[in-house]
Design a protein around this nucleic acid. Structure first.
Lengths: 342, 342
DNA sequence: ACTATCAGGTTAAACGTTTATATGAGTGTT
DNA sequence: AACACTCATATAAACGTTTAACCTGATAGT
C-alpha cells in the first residue's frame, strides 16, 4: 500500500487490459463493447474499488444529475418533510440533491445560492426566504431550470411556481370557526409580511368580514418559545378570544404552548385551528383541527415541473396552485355564546 | 445574447485584461496581485456574473470543501434536526453538505453511499441504518475521514464515533417510573434489534430487574400509524400496563396516538416516558416527561471530530459518549397501587 | 473480387481550474 | 554599469472524464 492515490479509470483500464475509452464506454453503454470486455472491466472496477469522479465527469460533459434545493430551515418540519419528499423523487430519477438552508436570512440565502450554483446543477428548487427574489437567482432563472415554491412574493415570474391556495385555506378555516358561532377571533400569524401568510390572513379576514366579524392579529415570529411568550403576553394584556387560527405549524405550536402554560383548556375555553398536519396533532386527547398542506403533492408538482424544464421544455411558465383542505377534528368547539342562547 | 455558454475564468481574464492565472490568484490570494488588478478582476467578475466552477476546481486540487451526510430519513425529526445543526456548523467552516437518506434500507444505503463518494468529499458523517457497516464504507474508512453517529453496532471501529449513553438513559427513565410506584411496565420499542434501542431496553430492564420487576416489550416499527395500530392491538389483547416507556420519538408519538384512540388518560390511567424532546411534547395540557437526546451536542461533537481528522490528525479513534438526561414533567403519575395503600 | 458497412477497439483533445515555472520590469547595492 | 533580488504577471501542464475521429478486421452485398 504505497501513497494511496485514488483509483481512476486509468487503473481500471490497465487492470482490464483495455483503453480508458473502452472503460468509459463499457460503463456508459454509449458505444458497443463486447460482453467479454464489459465483464473484464466490471470485474476490474470491482476488485479495485473504482468510483467514478463526478467532478471530472461533469467538467467534461457540462451536465450533472444534481439539483439544488434551498429552503429556509430544516428545523421546520414543513420544509424537512418537503426536502425529504424531493429527495425520494430525485433518487428515483437518478438525481442527487444538494441541500442548502437560508435560515430566513437574505444574506445567507444569497451566499448559499452562490455556493449551490458553483456546482452547476441541472436545476434548482427554492423556497425564497422573503418576498424578494435574490439577484443571483433572478439572473440565473433565464438559463437554469428553476422552480419556486411556497413563498412567492410576485406574480408573473418567468419561472414555474408551486403554491398553495392560501386565501382559500384561510377562508375555510375562518368559516369553520364562524359556523361554530365564534365571533372573537384571533389570528396567530408568524410574519404577516410574508406573502403566503398575508394571503392566509386575507382569506380569514375576508370570511370574517362577510360575517360581520373583525378578527384581530398577533405576530408570533418563527420561533416556538418566542411565539408562546408573545402570545402569552398578548392574552394577558388583551383578554381571550374564543377562537384562535394559527397560520403556520410553528405558530400552532406556540399557541398550544401558551395555552398549556396559561392553563387554557381547548376547546372548552378557546378553540383552535392549526396549520399543517403532523402526527403530533392527532396524538392528543383533543385532536387538532388543522389546515393540511399537501406536502407530497407540492414536492411532486415541483419535481415534475423541474424535470420537464430539464427535459428542454420552453413552454410558458406555469403556476400550480394546490388546495390545502381543512381537517375537521375536535379542537373547535361550539362557542359559549351559541350554547348559552340555545 | 448568443449561444449562452457559461462564463469562465477566461472571460473574466479577458474582460480585466489579465491572464487567467492572475484571476485565479486574485481570488485565492495565494500569490501577490496588485490592488489595482484585484479591483479590475473583481469588477469584471461582478459585471459578467462569474461563478467558479467547483467541479473544475476540485478536479485540479483534488480537494473540495464538501462533506457527505448520510441519515436514515429526513422525515424523522431527530435526524432532520441533526442534519440542520450539521449544516449550520458546516457553513460556519465554509463547507457544503451533501445529504443522502437511506430510508432504513441497506441496499439504498449502499447506493447512496456510492453516489456520495463519487463527489470525493473531504469527509463523511453517517448514521448507519443497521448494525452492519456497509462494505463500501468499511473500505473507505481507512482513507476518508469518517464519523459514525448514533447507530453503532460494533465496538472497536477504526473511526471516531459519537453516541448517546443509551443504557444510562434507559435506566434513568425506568428508575423514574419505578420511584413513582409503577410495577407493570411496558417498553414501546421501535426495532429491538438496533443497537441503540437494544441498549435502551437493556438499561430499562436492568433497572427494573434490580427492583424485582420484569418489564414487557412490544415492537412498534418506525412508522407512527403502524406503531399506533400495533400498540392498540397489544393493549386490547394483553391489557394495560401502568406505565409505558417509549424508546424513540416515533414510538412516543405512536403511543400517544394509541392512547388518544383508546381514550386512555395520561397520566391518570397510564403513565408515559417519551424519548427525544421536541416542542410539541411540552405544548400539551400534560407536558411529557422524556429522555432528551442532546442533538446539538451530538452534531457539534461529530463535526469537530471530522474537522480534526480532515485537519490531518491520525490519533486513535475516539468514542464520544453523551448523556441523555431525563426531563421530568407531568406525564408520569404516582401509581394507583401506591395511592391506594397510602 | 471489390466495395460498403459494421462492430469493437484506440488515440487524443477538450472541459475550467490551480500552480510550478518562466519572464520581465523595477529597485537597490556594489 | 553590472548584478542580484523582488514583485507582478504570463505560460503551460495537469487533474479524470467523455467523445469525436480514426483504425482494423470481419461480414455482407453486388
Amino acid at each position: 500500500m504505497s501513497v494511496m492515490t485514488a483509483i481512476t479509470i486509468k487503473d481500471v483500464a490497465a487492470e482490464a487490459g483495455v483503453s480508458i475509452a473502452t472503460v468509459s464506454n463499457a460503463f456508459s453503454g454509449r458505444k458497443a463493447v463486447s460482453p467479454e470486455v464489459v465483464r473484464r472491466v466490471e470485474e476490474a472496477a470491482r476488485t479495485l474499488g473504482y468510483q467514478k469522479n463526478i467532478a471530472a465527469s461533469q467538467l467534461r460533459t457540462g451536465r450533472v444529475k444534481v439539483v439544488g434545493v434551498l429552503v429556509p430551515s430544516l428545523a421546520d418540519t414543513f420544509f424537512a418533510a418537503l426536502v425529504s419528499d424531493l429527495e425520494k423523487l430525485a433518487e428515483a430519477d437518478g438525481y442527487q440533491v444538494l441541500v442548502a438552508t437560508s435560515g430566513d436570512d437574505a444574506a445567507r440565502e444569497a451566499a448559499q445560492l452562490d455556493a449551490l450554483l458553483g456546482w452547476k446543477p441541472s436545476g434548482l428548487i427554492a423556497v425564497p426566504c422573503t418576498n424578494a427574489i435574490p439577484d443571483t437567482l433572478r439572473r440565473e432563472m433565464v438559463a437554469l431550470p428553476v422552480v419556486l415554491v411556497d413563498r412567492i412574493g410576485e406574480e408573473d415570474l418567468p419561472v414555474d411556481t408551486v403554491v398553495v391556495d392560501n386565501h382559500a385555506a384561510g377562508r375555510e378555516a375562518a368559516q369553520h370557526v364562524l359556523e361554530k358561532g365564534h365571533r372573537e377571533i384571533l389570528i396567530a400569524a408568524s410574519v404577516a409580511g410574508l406573502r403566503p401568510i398575508a394571503e392566509r390572513i386575507r382569506g380569514i379576514t375576508d370570511a370574517c368580514l362577510a360575517a360581520g366579524v373583525a378578527p384581530r392579529i398577533v405576530e408570533l415570529g418563527t420561533d416556538v418559545e418566542e411565539g408562546a411568550a408573545r402570545l402569552g403576553a398578548f392574552l394577558a394584556r388583551e383578554g381571550h378570544p374564543t377562537a384562535v387560527i394559527a397560520t403556520t405549524n410553528v405558530t400552532t405550536l406556540a399557541t398550544l404552548t401558551a395555552f398549556a402554560q396559561a392553563g387554557i383548556d381547548m376547546p372548552a375555553d378557546v378553540s383552535l385551528v392549526g396549520f399543517d398536519d403532523y402526527a403530533w396533532m392527532t396524538a392528543r386527547r383533543v385532536p387538532l383541527s388543522a389546515v393540511r398542506q399537501p406536502i407530497s403533492d407540492i414536492a411532486q408538482s415541483a419535481w415534475s415541473c423541474l424535470m420537464t424544464r430539464i427535459g428542454g421544455s420552453a413552454d410558458a411558465a406555469v403556476r400550480i396552485v394546490l388546495d390545502a383542505p381543512l381537517q375537521r377534528r375536535n379542537s373547535v368547539g361550539v362557542s359559549r355564546r351559541v350554547l348559552d342562547t340555545a
